[in-house]
Design a protein around this nucleic acid. Structure first.
Lengths: 294, 294
DNA sequence: CCCCATTATTGCTATATAGCAATAGTATTT
DNA sequence: AAATACTATTGCTATATAGCAATAATGGGG
């Protein structure tokens, strides 16, 4: 297999007319340059330079070879400059995998603003909650909610979302208001992702098993069912902003609300994250973490 | 300064889709390929490959960089092929420095035949006896006569030329024939290169100091002067072939003639002598040494 | 579902290379 | 003419790299 070894040194000697001058230009020792060129000549079985003490000149073969090697060196410089420029340019496609209502409601709008600020970027958000294959799918980062499973990824907390329990006024009029999380076993609860709700009871986070006649993994559907009086709902507070403002739902069990799980940005643990990813992640953290999670 | 390190490995990984396959192609270890690519990424500050266990793909930057590096690798292959082809082709200009009558009389004609056999060669013979600067003047080899001074050169003996002492019949009639080299101090001698002639006396080579009224470093001029009866001449035997055949000159001191000095081909002690030089030198030695020096 | 084969990474050791210093040769300066 | 400075090469040593082996992860086959 071909090797580029000695090419840079040979070109430098040819251009500078000597090993010592070439070594100074390359910032290495004269003996290194001497040996690299000698090895190159040995590898290609041809004298490239004619030498006497204090004098070096190109042979006929060396002249021709130099022209070609010079193009290789220039080509490498251009390749490196271009990859360097690309590295500090904001271009290409930002690919995000987002899951959950929070991503839909808050992350997407913020990314929209970010995209407007960077017209040369394309943003591709795939809303799904499946396990992401970062390498295969070329995903820059994912937004995930709850506990994370893959320890090889880097996770940066976006927000801890405080929870809120609500019910419709009609439901409470008919079934009474629960005064403690333990009372929930006597109530109809509207389930979302799982049937254990975490409450802060005397400073301790306790898991309360709940049940009900309605369940959905869509937070909008949960809110509607609650408004219809189908039971008590317990989701991140922001989910109920509109319903609370219009008095369609009212808060219950307020002293016991948990801090709730976190939303995360997760991405590959790798060097040289593309600039677009780094800036987008930083932008999201800056514009969402700072909200205090409401 | 730019470095080509890792380029070959990176291109191989990109094309084969994995480090192990690339290592097999390159005939090296997987760990070497892994490290070379990692070092390349570190040097250019950019991820070229996205990796998971058992899977490698090019990043956006890596894709662009690969295209350029592929051209570099192809360019290197072409450069090496071309220099290899040149190496085994007989082309270019054979540059020879020749000194002395022997070179003019015998070497030039033989090289002429050699040149006729190789139409793609140009032969450039510079007749002079100054010290050759092989590197500066781009000389392939030189033809020299007598003792050599530069021990760093390679010297291959072309011919040892036996000497001959001659005089014109008129000269001998007038001044008598010398019977021993010691008698030469009483005779007029025609000098060429120096005033000490070497004779074989009782198996020992002895230096006899001679003098005369005529001196020239041109052997043709020496022969003419001798024919005019200006004295005794002592040069390589071949110098006098015509004059002897036509009885214009006769031999003297025959039992004492020395073997004479040698003619040499000298060239740089260097690797990878161009093919044209190697073939020409071999051709000369084959076609001149075999004559036995007459 | 389990086992095996293959992959990529990295700690560690053997090996090749980079640099230092000595050497020889030559050009320039005094 | 002699001394000095600079050059290229090479022996030797310190350092970086190549390869081996261990490790962890994953895909394919039974």
């Amino acid at each position: 297999m071909e090797s580029f070894e000695g090419i840079v040194e040979f070109v430098a000697v040819a251009e500078r007319g000597g090993f010592s001058s070439a070594a100074r230009q390359l910032g290495c020792s004269t003996s290194h340059v001497s040996r690299q060129v000698a090895r190159l000549e040995e590898r290609i079985g041809c004298a490239l330079l004619a030498r006497s003490t204090r004098l070096v000149s190109l042979t006929e073969n060396g002249s021709a070879y130099y022209q070609q090697c010079k193009e290789l060196v220039v080509g490498l410089q251009q390749a490196n400059e271009q990859v360097n420029q690309q590295q500090f340019n904001l271009n290409g496609t930002l690919r995000v995998s987002a899951a959950g209502g929070f991503a839909e409601q808050f992350v997407a709008p913020v990314l929209m603003v970010f995209a407007q600020q960077h017209p040369e970027l394309t943003v591709d958000i795939d809303f799904n909650s499946r396990m992401v294959n970062f390498v295969e799918d070329g995903i820059d980062f994912a937004v995930r909610y709850g506990e994370l499973t893959d320890s090889s990824l880097i996770a940066r907390k976006l927000v801890s979302r405080p929870m809120m329990a609500v019910a419709s006024p009609d439901y409470l009029k008919q079934y009474g208001e629960p005064k403690h999380p333990n009372h929930l076993k006597n109530h109809s609860c509207i389930l979302s992702n799982n049937d254990h709700w975490f409450f802060n009871i005397d400073g301790i986070q306790e898991s309360i098993k709940v049940s009900g006649r309605w369940r959905s993994n869509n937070s909008n559907a949960v809110v509607e069912a609650c408004e219809q009086g189908l039971g008590i709902a317990y989701l991140p507070k922001s989910t109920f902003n509109d319903a609370i403002e219009s008095d369609r739902l009212v808060a219950v069990l307020e002293p016991f609300w948990g801090k709730g799980a976190s939303s995360w940005i997760v991405y590959q643990n790798r060097q040289f994250l593309p600039l677009r990813a780094r800036l987008a992640i930083d932008y999201l953290i800056e514009h969402i973490s700072g909200w205090g999670g409401s």
